[in-house]
């Protein structure tokens, strides 16, 4: 039983391969981590899954349907939502309207604004932004904007949520809070998560399974405990880095 499956997916820009032969599968309800250095191909993988970019080769299935080559909005409506590494809020709109828009257009396509707004308020409460609902998004702090990024993706009503470094740049206590928030969302909203993160410890705490990318190819996959002792991973990353 898989929700998402990638088969030999690759992407190259003008002959330079950013990603090669990537295959993996994610089952419903799982939390899977994507790990790797800058340029390893993590964000490229997200963009290909979410339809922001078109893969040069390979196939992607979501819920039994081919989605590679589909435009981003179509993928979003099928139930995949993503966050952006560099957050992209609708800066001039209020926090709640960021979510209302996602609820009106995402997989749920709420029929009325009233329903969309109710959903938005519920999610804002879950991510701790309820008090900021009517502030313009551009006035939020970085931590707030990262939360908004997650909240807006959730408002689209996804079954699969792709989180791209939502912890980066946060303080230690903010990281702990954000992890709790993600776990709570996962549980309450029955989400499947694929998470890109640089904060290694956060990743091992959060994920049941980790996929390690290096120079655009998968070099390891397994439970956090397995991955940290994998020789290729140690050679590529851990040997030179403190955990």
């Amino acid at each position: 039983m898989t929700l998402l499956r990638l088969e030999d997916v690759g992407k190259s820009y003008g002959g330079v391969a950013a990603l090669r032969g990537l295959s993996f599968a994610v089952g419903p309800g799982e939390i899977v981590g994507l790990m790797g250095a800058n340029g390893a191909g993590k964000t490229t993988a997200f963009s290909l899954i979410a339809g922001t970019q078109r893969p040069s080769e390979g196939r992607i299935w979501f819920d039994g349907k081919r989605i590679d080559g589909k435009p981003a909005y179509a993928v979003a409506r099928l139930g995949i939502a993503r966050t952006f590494q560099i957050v992209r809020p609708f800066a001039g709109l209020t926090v709640i309207d960021n979510l209302v828009i996602a609820a009106l257009y995402g997989r749920l396509r709420e029929r009325s604004r009233g329903a969309a707004e109710a959903r938005a308020r519920e999610i804002l409460a879950e991510v701790g932004l309820a008090a900021d609902a009517t502030r313009p998004a551009e006035t939020l702090t970085l931590a707030g904007r990262k939360r908004l990024e997650v909240a807006r993706a959730v408002a689209a009503g996804p079954r699969l949520l792709l989180l791209d470094e939502v912890l980066a740049g946060l303080t230690a206590s903010e990281v702990a809070e954000a992890l709790d928030m993600i776990r709570a969302l996962h549980r309450r909203r029955r989400l499947t998560l694929v998470v890109i993160e640089h904060v290694m410890r956060a990743l091992t705490q959060l994920c049941q399974r980790i996929i390690v990318l290096h120079h655009g190819a998968k070099i390891a996959e397994g439970s956090p405990a397995e991955v940290v002792v994998d020789q290729r991973v140690i050679d590529a990353y851990l040997g030179t880095r403190k955990l």
Partner: peptide
């Protein structure tokens, strides 16, 4: 302004890539 279309247009004004990512066929 008060319909779905208006919300989509405002989202496009703010950030077209993000708008597509939440399901708006820009």
């Amino acid at each position: 302004r008060s319909a779905r279309l208006g919300a989509g247009l405002l989202a496009i004004r703010e950030d077209e890539v993000a708008a597509e990512a939440v399901g708006i066929n820009a």
